[in-house]
Computed example of a mutant assay.
Amino acid sequence: MPGPREEGKWRLINPLNIRFSQPRIAPHFRDGHLIKDSACEVFEAPLQDRVYAGAASEDAADGVPSYDLVLVPPFPAIRVISWLPKLRRPDGEAERDANGDQLLGKRAWFALDNRRLYSLQCAAARRWPRRCCVVVRCIEEVPGGEGLRELRKFRTTTEGRSVEVGARAGETRPFNWMQAAPPGAITRGMEVEGLYAEDLFDAWQWAPQAVAASAHAGQQEEEQEKLIGVSEGGYPGGKKEVKMAPCPDNGWQYIDPAGNIQGPFPIEKMRIWHRHNFFYADLPMRSDPVDAFLPFGQLFPAGEQPFHGRVLRCRQNAKNGLPMPLRQVQ
């Protein structure tokens, strides 16, 4: 079975035509990097000239793409699925007909990586009216394993046209791409490229440089995920940039829901706040300003009492050249 980064077909699509599958997203990635800042890290690349384009894929769209540019993000390609969403009321309950059957909306492309979609939509909206596209992985069948958990999160109440941004329910703000676009931007007249992978342009043919960048980012992310999973003794080869270490007495920091770094604080204050349940699992935190931020739920593996024994430390500038943890899925 292919892994999650080997699934689907490489295709091009306008990120403004992709919808959010979840009703709410956090304002930061798991490494503490703000999703709004990632939009500024996206750079532009031209489409491959038709003269030099490779042979057209037999199961992709024919003709010439009408995009003006390709957006290349600092993270792997997002995964999308063509889906019939359930219609839901604002409280999240499913809409039903007179017979009690659930009502479905119109088929559209939905993202499995919602925070990354937010960054891409911001980047594309700021470039309006230029027509942007991004490389995506089209998942044509319901993904297995981890994907099933992601599909259970398909609980958007707006058919994916907008999303709430905030760390906790009740502390969010609504977002749709029009908010990031220049004044005068309109959705009317936007082309919907197609509802199946066969209707979209082959990314390998028209944007090979963006595909290569995405594949490289995916490899880096896989390496970082292996590092984060390490506990005692560093990792193979004697490298110990990610390891368990005694909890320091001072230097604790976290990123609040507004995206501000708080601290450094002494460990005694962190213990008090923890006893009052102030910290949630996804809260980015670190025990020393030289470390990378990690989710609070990862800092103390099973068996470790928070702020008493040992803590997982990930050096921000590893000597072996590996970067700090990349933005992870969802």
Rank of each mutant, 00 (worst) to 15 (best):
I186H: 05
L117W: 00
G189N: 10
M178C: 06
R131T: 15
G184A: 07
E140V: 08
V163S: 03
R161V: 08
N114I: 02
R155S: 15
F110A: 07
C138P: 12
R96W: 01
D97I: 01
A125S: 06
R155G: 13
C132Y: 00
V163H: 01
N99E: 14
W109C: 08
F175V: 09
G194T: 01
R137Q: 14
L103A: 03
A167Y: 10
W177I: 04
E141N: 11
E150S: 13
V136K: 05
E193D: 04
R137K: 08
Q121D: 01
M178A: 11
G145S: 09
R131W: 09
A169K: 07
L112P: 04
A125M: 02
D101H: 03
E159L: 08
E198M: 07
V165I: 15
R155C: 12
K106V: 03
L195H: 06
Q179F: 08
R168K: 08
G170T: 13
E171F: 09
L120R: 00
V163P: 02
R173G: 06
G166C: 13
C133G: 10
A94C: 11
G147Q: 14
N176S: 14
M178K: 09
D101L: 10
E193G: 07
W128L: 08
E146P: 04
E140A: 11
P183V: 12
V192D: 05
T157G: 10
F110V: 02
R149M: 13
R137L: 14
V136H: 01
Y196T: 09
G184N: 03
A167K: 06
R155V: 15
I186F: 01
R126K: 15
V165E: 00
E93V: 00
A180I: 08
A185S: 14
L151E: 12
V142F: 07
C138D: 11
D113W: 00
E171C: 14
A123G: 06
L195W: 04
A185Q: 11
V192C: 14
F110P: 03
A125C: 10
E198L: 04
G160N: 10
G100Q: 05
T187A: 13
A123P: 05
R96F: 01
C133K: 05
I139P: 05
N176H: 09
L200H: 05
Y118W: 06
E141V: 10
R126V: 14
